[in-house]
Design a binder for these strands. Structure first.
Lengths: 222, 222
DNA sequence: GTTTTCATGTAACCCGTTACATGATTCA
DNA sequence: TGAATCATGTAACGGGTTACATGAAAAC
C-alpha cells in the first residue's frame, strides 16, 4: 500500500486536481504558490509521482505543450510526462482533505490543507480551523505551565525566546479567530478573478494592511 | 569524524556545558526549557550521546544523584550514566556558537543558537542577529516577487496564507530590530535571578506585555 | 507487592535532501 | 554551434521518529 503520507503527496494531488502538469512545472508551483512555507526537490518529487501512479491515483500521459501542435508530427518525440489525476486519486484527495487525524493540525500539515481550502466545503474548513486553534491552545497551555515552572532558573535570552514564541502562537490564534468568524459570516468566495487593486472591503476574507508592494514589474518567471 | 551536525548535538553540548546530566534529564530539559520549538525522542538522543562520546566531546561517568550518598555503599549499583563536557567538547561548542555557516540562519538553527546566547560574547550575538535578519529580508524579497507574479491566479485562501506568512516574517524582523537595538545599547544581563513580578522596565531586554499568566499553581512535573 | 516513573537502549522506518547523471529544447 | 534552461531521473545519505525491549527505583 505504500503509506507515502506527508505533505508532498498531498500537495501534488491538490495541484494536479486543478490541472494536469508534468513534474518540472509541478515543482515550480510547489515552491512558489505553495512554497512560502516549504521547498521541495526533484529527488523527492519524482519518486513520489511514481508511487502515486503505482497507487492508481495518477496516470502518466506522454504529452507535449498543447499549443505545440506542429511538433506532434515528429516521430521519436517523447519525454515531458504529464500527470493527470484519476477518479480514485480525486477521491483519495477528498478523503485527505476531510480526514481529521491527530497529525492534521501540525504546522505544515495545516498550512498545506489551508492552501487547498478553495476546493473544500465550509464545514470541513470550519473543522480544520477549529482543530488547529484548539491544537495551538493546548500548546499555549504547555508553554505557560513550563514557563511558570522554570522561569526563575532561565536566563534572559531563553526567556525572551519563549516569550516571543508564545506571542507568535497567540497571534496565530487571533488570526484563526478572524478566519473562523469570516467563515461563520459566510464571507468567502471561490476564486477572486483579477481584481487588480484591492482597496475596499470586498466580499472575501478579512482584508489587512500591508502585504506586497504595488510594483507590477517582472512578469516573467525569472 | 562523524558529522552528526544538526540541532540536537548543538543543544546537548549547550545544556551539558551548564552542568553534567544523564540522558533522561537531558531530554526533559530539551523539551521544556528549549522545547518550545522542538521535541526530541530517546531514539535520537542516546545514539547522539554515543557519537559525542566517540568524538571525545563528552565523557560518561557512572553517577547517582549527588545527595544519594548512602546508596554509594551498595555493590552492584550502576545505570544512570552522567555525561560531562570535556575540554575539547567545550571548545567545539564555542566553535559552533561562533560559526557563521550558510545554514546557521535557518529557523531552528537560529532558535537553538539564540537559546544559548547567555554563553556568548556580544559581537557573536550581533553577527547572529544580523545574519538572521538579512536572511529573513531575502526571504521577504522572494515572497514579494512571487506574489507580484502570481497574485491574479491565486484564490483567496492561498492569498491569505501568503499574506499571513509574510506578516509573520515581517514581525520577526521587527523583533530582531529591537534585539539588535538592545545589544547596541548594551542592555543585556547574564542571569536575571528571580524577579517575581516584572512590572517596570528593568535593566534587561525590552519588556513586553502579555506572556504567562500570574498563576503559580502546579509546581510538579505534570 | 504492584503500579508508576525513571532510565537506557535498539532496529526499522520515514520523509525528505544532495549530488550526480542524462538528454531534449530554446535562444543567441 | 554552443550555452542556458527545461526536463527526468537515481543512489547515497541525513537527521530524525516509532515502536519495541528491558530493567531499576520510588510511590502507593
Amino acid at each position: 500500500m505504500s503509506r507515502r503520507s506527508g505533505i508532498l503527496e498531498f500537495a501534488v494531488l491538490g495541484l494536479l486536481r486543478e490541472s494536469p502538469m508534468h513534474g518540472y512545472e509541478l515543482r515550480k508551483r510547489l515552491n512558489t504558490s505553495l512554497g512560502v512555507f516549504r521547498a521541495f526537490s526533484y529527488g523527492s518529487l519524482y519518486p513520489c509521482l511514481k508511487t502515486l501512479v503505482a497507487n492508481g491515483w495518477l496516470i502518466e500521459e506522454p504529452g507535449s505543450a498543447p499549443e505545440d501542435a506542429r511538433a506532434a508530427s515528429l516521430a521519436g518525440r517523447r519525454a515531458k510526462i504529464v500527470y493527470r489525476l484519476t477518479a480514485e486519486g480525486k477521491e483519495h484527495f477528498e478523503e485527505l482533505l476531510a480526514h481529521t487525524g491527530p497529525d492534521a493540525w501540525e504546522d505544515e500539515h495545516f498550512a498545506a490543507r489551508f492552501a487547498f481550502f478553495g476546493q473544500t466545503s465550509r464545514d470541513v474548513r470550519m473543522r480544520v480551523l477549529e482543530g488547529r486553534r484548539s491544537r495551538l491552545e493546548e500548546r499555549l497551555e504547555k508553554m505557560r505551565a513550563s514557563l511558570a515552572r522554570t522561569r526563575e532558573r532561565l536566563d534572559d535570552y531563553t526567556l525572551e525566546l519563549q516569550r516571543h514564541g508564545m506571542e507568535s502562537v497567540e497571534r496565530e490564534v487571533r488570526w484563526l479567530n478572524e478566519l473562523i468568524e469570516s467563515e461563520r459570516a459566510g464571507r468567502y468566495q471561490r476564486n477572486g478573478s483579477a481584481a487588480p487593486d484591492t482597496s475596499g472591503e470586498a466580499g472575501g476574507l478579512p482584508r489587512h494592511r500591508g502585504g506586497s508592494r504595488p510594483d507590477p514589474s517582472d512578469d516573467t518567471t525569472k
